[in-house]
């Protein structure tokens, strides 16, 4: 009887070990390379005929919160970041960002201007979600850095 119960006990421990093996595999897949898009956007009421407008989804979201009617994309950077790595990109002469791929879908974004870090923000960013860093710009306009994840 004792041998039988011990046998069941062993089977249970093997099953649990197997589960953890599978689970660790899933976790490692989750924390793979991510594709990040960072856009520098200008929010203004002025019309710029030559300006490239942002996508409908970004415009809709920004115009819901901010007063400006037009949102123009000045630069658009796409880059992939392996697990636990950091990549930097220059968006304008004075604005650059550093994006780190943290574990379990978390990213960390640092904004630099004129050689100093202004802010560092970390959050879980899912595909289809946006992280926006924003501030004032010249002539009643605003700058936006819109960060999204493709995978």
């Amino acid at each position: 009887m004792f041998v039988l119960s011990n046998f069941r006990f062993s089977i249970a421990s093997i099953c649990i070990a197997f589960f953890f093996f599978i689970d660790s595999g899933i976790t490692s897949v989750k924390s793979d390379t991510i594709e990040v898009t960072a856009s520098l956007v200008l929010g203004t009421d002025k019309e710029k005929k030559s300006g490239k407008k942002v996508s409908g989804s970004i415009r809709k979201r920004l115009s819901k919160v901010f007063k400006w009617n037009n949102y123009y994309k000045l630069s658009d950077k796409k880059f992939s970041i392996p697990d636990n790595k950091t990549k930097s990109t220059v968006l304008s002469k004075k604005a650059s960002i550093k994006v780190s791929n943290r574990k379990e879908g978390k990213i960390s974004v640092s904004l630099f201007s004129e050689g100093k870090m202004l802010i560092q923000k970390s959050q879980n960013l899912r595909s289809g979600s946006y992280m926006v860093l924003a501030g004032e710009s010249a002539g009643d306009s605003a700058w936006f850095i819109v960060i999204s994840k493709s995978n």
Binding site: L42, K94, S129, M131, L133, E136, A138
Partner: peptide
């Protein structure tokens, strides 16, 4: 699905 951080920092991005 959006988080916004408004920073009181002016940049003439154009």
């Amino acid at each position: 699905s959006m988080s916004v951080v408004w920073i009181d920092y002016s940049m003439d991005i154009q």
